[in-house]
Design a protein around this nucleic acid. Structure first.
Length: 788
DNA sequence: TATCCCTACGATGTCG
DNA sequence: CGACATCGTAGG
């Protein structure tokens, strides 16, 4: 039977039959749309064609057909043979193009499909026994309409396990609770019955029942998006391990295949859009967070966290004791985790959907993408040429060894200044690319030659002034679109429904534009170009120097500058920001633009710790609304004790806002006295330590390494990036020999001298030094360390 | 297979 | 004790 289907696509799978798109019809039926005509292709140099074909024949690799297109030949293979063909070319040392693109992503990208945006397909209905969907058709043509599904059904889930040890082991420890949450559905499954259970609790007979009921429920409530927090690393692998124990018959995938864990541990659920939202939070959104625990991330993005924090030990205790009110608490705890995951997903979904549309990838890929992936596919989508292969490991190694100069940083004069004006370039590097047509194919063109092209003399490079390159074209598009959105945003009320959506769109464009410039210099890039990368930064330095020169001519004293922005102090009354912008922007080539960022009541630039002069990338500002903005200082670092951070912040506020150094000193004195009297709570003394590598690989045993060793001895998972809170104990010898885990310590243990000299005073002495304030007086001359 | 780039600071350990 | 290496974190 011939059917015309309108459906919202959610997922894509590739197998020997071709490509299958999955989705929901407008009346919410599950559909599979098979494109059996799909024949992927790749390119090799025409000169190698004969050889390649001969060798393919030898090894029984079937080339469906091929065409010669000048220098390159285009070869078509069945989807299932694509990976072989790519590996084959690589082994033969033949340069291939478009051969190593993952087919799921490439098909989606090339067809311009957008997740949850209506697609139309006409074709014959097919019966496939294994498919757990309502309708299957086979089609030759898929057409996208832009209408996006409003209010998709987002379903979040979360498991709790009970383990007597620190970390649950799927061999030993059961799943005790499973929560499923969406806007109008909530359920917690558990196999230990208790009285007066909340109405969302459903009792099952065993863990095995729990697993089956969980999967069945997920199938029945038809999620457009299925989401977990940390689910790629914990919940799903755990579920798989436990389900295997019971030979569970229930399957989540719509094509009835088993769930598979991919190369980067990411899991593909066939059918709905499934992703682990923590990946997006970590990779794209939250580059500046210490840790990405659900609680911390929720607080930051949603303004609310968990209602309670339960340790694994406590959960185990509550479960084994089994008091009804405590089991009810566990159920609630479980549900809240799923609820937060669901709300996080709702919150970031607009940005993810925008990126998906802009870049042309399934939402699953967007969610787990890094900046590199986003940019790569954005270029692929816009490129009409064959796509260069990913570099080999050897090539990446070579590329990494070559580095180039980056942005210019101007050393500040240390001290307090007021007031301060701040200017910065709007998207410096992207606008340089657009202004000067920076792209590999426009570099050192013969049509212009050095004389007529735009020249970067110091590098001996020039860029075409006649034909626009691919990268400048797409960057311009990004810049224009973002500017249009920002203009609308300016006139939109923040409470308007459209505001957050515009904001999301604007963010998506910003992310891609910002990463694009770095992508030229990225060793793993398909479009790597060393000279383009260094031309961009060289021009960046040229323009910030121009701005500095003009600012000084205009009547500003330039206090500090870093890469794309400057801080100045007006030297004469008429030297106002607006007039300066008019002058400088008339000199700058479009779309380059200097913007006035803000004015600050005061700014303190720190002196270098050793040697004279000011420290770069370390300063404090006071906004006109009396808020502190701190950059580079201990107070905003993740590896300092709370007491040092708090004290630094408080003292800066007293000095910048109240201009009262004596008051600041008095405050410092109370902190030091409290320290001496062991009145500081342990939580304020704990120093968070984290390692980026495996514990065994360290040549130097720093305090944080020592702390990680202690944590490991106690059986904690000290995986890379795990945070271990430690304190420094009283004693003699190296600091790293005096490390203790914070959780094993009491306020009696901490070393008063270390916390005084190495934490609190280290964080504040440069502030007092700027006012020639003698801290010795304050301490009663008891210091053993020089230099304060 | 690595996860975007370069610039910069400071803490601590190691070694001569 | 000073110079240098190792390491993590931050700015833009």
């Amino acid at each position: 039977m011939r059917l015309e289907l309108a459906f919202y696509p959610t997922d894509i799978a590739v197998n020997s039959d071709g490509v299958t798109l999955f989705g929901y019809t407008t009346d919410n039926k599950k559909v599979a749309v098979i494109d059996s005509t799909y024949l992927p292709y790749f390119f090799i140099p025409s000169a190698k064609l004969e050889d390649f074909l001969a060798k393919c024949k030898e090894h029984n690799l079937q080339i469906e057909h091929f065409e010669r297109l000048g220098e390159l030949a285009k070869l078509y293979v069945r989807p299932i043979d694509m990976a072989h063909a790519a590996a084959f070319a690589r082994n033969l040392g033949v340069d291939s193009f478009s051969a190593d693109l993952p087919l799921r992503a490439h098909y989606w990208n090339a067809k311009g499909i957008k997740p949850l945006c209506l697609c139309k397909a006409t074709g014959e209905t097919v019966t496939i026994k294994d498919f757990k969907v309502d309708i299957v058709i086979s089609t030759e043509r898929i057409e996208c309409v832009d209408a996006q599904l409003q209010d998709p059904n987002i379903v979040a889930f979360d498991f709790e396990t009970a383990s007597a040890r620190g970390y649950p082991d799927p061999e030993e420890d059961a799943i005790i609770l499973a929560a499923i949450y969406s806007k109008n559905f909530r359920k917690v499954l558990t196999w230990k019955r208790f009285e007066k259970a909340p109405d969302y609790v459903e009792f099952v007979n065993s863990e095995s029942d729990l697993i089956d009921t969980f999967i069945k429920t997920l199938r029945d409530i038809k999620p457009h998006i299925l989401v977990g927090y940390g689910s790629d690393n914990f919940d799903f692998p755990y579920l798989l391990a436990r389900a295997a124990k019971y030979n569970s018959p229930e399957v989540l995938n719509w094509d009835n295949s088993a769930l598979e864990i991919g190369k980067r541990k990411n899991l593909h659920v066939v059918g709905p859009i499934y992703f682990d939202i923590s990946r997006f939070v970590r990779n794209i959104l939250g580059l500046d967070m210490d840790q990405y625990k659900l609680d911390a991330v929720s607080k930051r993005l949603l303004g609310k966290g968990k209602r309670a924090i339960l340790t694994a030990k406590r959960i185990n205790e509550m479960w084994s004791v089994g008091l009804p009110e405590e089991l009810a608490l566990l159920a609630e705890y479980n549900l809240v985790d799923a609820e937060l995951a669901c709300e996080l997903c709702s919150k970031v979904l607009p940005v993810e959907l925008e990126l998906a549309k802009l870049i042309g990838l399934p939402l699953q890929n967007i969610n787990s993408a890094t900046y590199g992936t986003l940019v790569e596919w954005f270029i692929i989508k816009n490129s009409k040429s064959p796509i260069p292969a990913r570099p080999t490991t050897a090539e990446m190694f070579l590329r990494r060894r070559r580095s180039y100069q980056g942005g210019l940083v101007v050393e500040p004069e240390p001290g307090l200044f007021r007031p301060i004006l701040a200017f910065d370039f709007r998207s410096l590097y992207p606008t340089i690319i657009a202004s000067h047509n920076i792209s590999p194919e426009t570099m050192n063109c013969t049509c212009c030659g050095q004389q007529r092209g735009f020249s970067v003399e110091e590098l001996g490079l020039w860029f075409c002034t006649k034909n626009e390159g691919l990268i400048p074209q797409v960057v311009k598009d990004l810049i224009d679109r973002r500017k249009r959105i920002n203009d609308i945003l300016q006139q939109t009320n923040p409470t308007d429904a459209s505001f957050s959506e515009l904001m999301a769109r604007q963010h998506a464009l910003k992310y891609v534009a910002a990463a694009l410039s770095g992508y030229f210099g990225y060793a793993g890039s398909r479009f790597y170009d060393f000279n383009c990368a260094r031309a961009i930064t060289a021009l960046g330095r040229r323009y910030i120097q121009l701005v500095i020169k003009e600012a000084e001519k205009f009547g500003f004293k330039v206090l500090y500058g870093d890469t794309d922005g400057i801080f100045v102090q007006p030297l004469r009354k008429e030297a106002d920001a607006k007039t300066f912008l008019l002058i400088i922007n008339s000199v700058l080539p479009k779309p380059m633009e200097l913007e006035y960022k803000s004015s600050y009541l005061a700014g303190l630039f720190f002196g270098k710790k050793s040697g004279a002069g000011g420290a770069k990338k370390r300063y404090a500002l006071l906004t006109e609304s009396d808020n502190l903005i701190l950059r580079g200082l201990e107070a905003i670092r993740g590896d300092w004790s709370a007491i040092a951070k708090k004290t630094q912040r408080e003292i800066l506020h007293i000095i910048l806002s109240e201009n009262d150094v004596d008051k600041a000193a008095t405050h410092l004195k109370t902190v030091l006295t409290d320290l001496k009297q062991r009145k500081i709570p342990l939580a304020d003394l704990a120093i968070p330590g984290r390692l980026r590598r495996a514990l065994s690989s360290y040549a130097i045993i720093s305090p944080r390494v020592a702390a990680a060793k202690l944590a490991e001895e106690k059986g904690y998972g000290t995986g890379r990036r795990a945070v271990v809170n430690y304190i420094i104990k009283t004693g003699t010898g190296k600091i790293s020999d005096r490390v203790a885990l914070a959780e094993d310590s009491t306020p009696e243990d901490y070393d008063i001298e270390y916390y005084t000299e190495h934490q609190v005073l280290r964080a504040v002495y440069k502030i007092f030094e700027a006012f020639n304030y003698d801290l010795e007086k304050l301490k009663g001359g008891q210091t053993t360390i020089q230099g304060y």
